[in-house]
Design a protein around this nucleic acid. Structure first.
Length: 504
RNA sequence: GCCGCGUUCGUCUAGGGGUUUAGGACGCCGGCCUUUCACGCCGGUAACACGGGUUCAAAUCCCGUACGCGGCACCA
């Protein structure tokens, strides 16, 4: 029983056509974190099925267009490593990939709907509609119940309609939603969803500026681009019946729909730009790049935010995600953003890197961290000690500042706790002993220190702690002896003597 | 207001009639390792929104309520 229904539902989510998905942002602002997740799920499905990932810019709203927003989106996707197979800058057989460049193309489809009686002209001004909305007690809907009261080609004589259009009167084209009992469709993450058709309004398809609305452009383009799965945010769920109807009116096979749960703020509400900023959560993808997150870690985190592999594995490479991803394991309830978990993913990815990869990542932050020319070999030795103890690659330079410059201060609490009266004498003796060593290494530094402790009849910690303080200025860090070897004998001895001078 | 979607530890989630003393991960707390701090390992804390049904049996199915979120534009 359950096996049968599983098979059936899985089959209904697939179709024989090769998988083609698209990410279709509108350039009204920078790419935000929710958009990146939508892009990711699309990307993963495409990779999983050796399909095609298309980027399409939905710029049909001239008023909200933001200069360079499309470039930010492209850049953000590139940073994240979500490469698309067709789209701006890459081309493809079914372009152009900017909807504004496809403006003329929608005309014939509008005409088709007009001819088949599934659409009509409407002359109502924005002001007139606004007035209707204001006087209506429970909201106004332009639909089967009200369109007879409006100024449109259904109420006006044909001659008037023709004349007004010829006159250049502004008009829009609306879809004529037929009354039927209900419109239902299968959503890959929610199952059957149904809406009463009388609740669906006569959506504007063509605006008075000649541009299509999202609803029309989206359906036409998805069809023309042979999109098989529409994966988008849950905010689109309520308008999906309109899209389903359009596919029906055009006589086209609709794609599989999958509506992703929305990302909520850690406090439960929706993750608005203002909220997020107040909570210190970056919203735009470029902020994550700037904050030093590993793109793979962000992707990993985002993938698990609303999806799970059905196993207990949590850490995935992008390739691993693509292999494990399936739409039917996407959850349906809103998810809260958790910065702690994101940081954990970042740490996991950092630790899983080969040393040279980690090192290369760290090196990209050198300049911004004010660390000039560093010897590659030296950086690698530092990285080897720091890889296990940082949350971000750039922390090698902040947490491990002392590897690159002389500490400019000694942690006050540390001094109080670790710099006892005998510290100067002990460190002086240790420095001297180090200078006499034939070979200086972690092993000999340790051996020397322990012998010295024995000779003075004190615990090794009595020397270890003040030495660390002298070398790094702080009380924590990698193994002291490993650190000494990386720093080198001269530096160690110098810093010990400086500390003796300064701390007395 | 109307329509839709949702509701398992604080968070992300597994589980979808009996296998469950409800599992994992983050966080938090404790321990081990280490004369540092981490990593790592071990352990602990903590949840089926509520009320009715259905059933021998319900976190799991149905209905209702509450709460949350989304949508109701010539925005996407």
């Amino acid at each position: 029983m359950s096996i049968v229904s599983q098979t059936v539902s899985a089959a209904s989510h697939m179709c024989s056509r090769p998988v083609r998905v698209r990410f279709a942002p509108s350039p009204t602002g920078f790419l935000h974190i929710g958009g990146l997740r939508t892009a990711l799920y699309n990307y993963l499905l495409a990779r999983k099925h050796d399909g095609t990932f298309v980027l399409r810019i939905e710029d049909t709203d001239r008023e909200r267009y933001v200069e360079d927003a499309d470039e930010d989106i492209i850049e953000a996707l590139s940073w994240a490593g979500l490469s698309y197979d067709e789209g701006p800058n890459v081309g493809g057989d079914v372009g152009p990939y900017y909807q504004s460049s496809r403006k003329e193309l929608y005309q014939q489809y509008v005409q088709q709907l007009l001819d088949s009686g599934h659409a009509y002209y409407a002359f109502d001004t924005p002001e007139a509609l606004e007035a209707r909305r204001e006087e209506a007690e429970h909201g106004f809907s332009y639909n089967a119940a009200t369109r007879g009261e409006m100024e449109n080609s259904l109420t006006l004589p044909d001659a008037d309609v023709t004349r007004r259009i010829a006159n250049g009167d502004p008009y829009v084209v609306r879809m004529k939603v037929a009354s039927e009992s209900s419109i239902r469709f299968e959503d890959a993450v929610r199952g059957t969803v149904s809406f009463a058709s009388e609740k669906v309004d006569d959506q504007v398809l063509l605006k008075s500026d000649g541009m299509p609305t999202y609803h029309l452009a989206n359906v036409v383009d998805d069809h023309l681009m042979a999109i098989t799965h529409v994966i988008r945010g849950e905010e689109w769920l309520p308008s999906t019946p309109k899209h389903v109807l359009l596919y029906r009116y055009f006589g086209w096979e609709p794609p599989v729909f999958a509506h992703l749960p929305l990302i909520l703020s850690p406090e439960g509400g929706k993750l608005s730009k203002r909220d997020a900023e107040a909570l210190g959560i970056p919203v735009s993808v470029s902020d994550y790049a700037e904050a030093g997150y590993e793109p793979e870690a962000l992707l990993n985190f985002l993938a698990l935010l609303g999806w799970n592999p059905g196993t207990e594995q949590e850490v995935f490479s992008p390739e691993g995600l693509a292999k494990a991803f399936t739409l039917d394991r996407v959850g349906s309830s809103g998810v809260q953003f958790d910065m702690d978990k994101l940081r954990w993913f970042n740490e996991q990815h950092l630790r899983a890197m080969a040393l040279d990869t980690f090192c290369a990542r760290v090196a990209t932050h050198a300049e911004a961290q004010g660390v000039g020319d560093i010897d590659d070999g030296y950086l690698e030795r530092v990285c080897a000690l720091m890889q296990e103890r940082v949350s971000f690659a750039h922390e090698v330079f902040t947490e491990g500042r002392y590897f690159f410059e002389v500490p400019d201060a000694y942690n006050e609490k540390g001094v109080k706790k670790r710099w006892k009266d005998d510290a100067p004498a002990l460190l002086g003796a240790y420095a001297e002993a180090l200078e006499e060593l034939d070979t200086f290494s972690a092993a000999t530094a340790e051996e020397t220190l322990r012998e010295l402790a024995d000779a003075h009849d004190c615990g090794a910690g009595r020397i270890i702690h003040p030495t660390r303080l002298a070398l790094s200025g702080v009380t924590f860090g990698p193994s002291l002896f490993a650190m000494m070897e990386v720093l080198g004998r001269t530096t160690c001895v110098e810093r010990m003597r400086t500390a003796i001078d300064v701390l007395g």
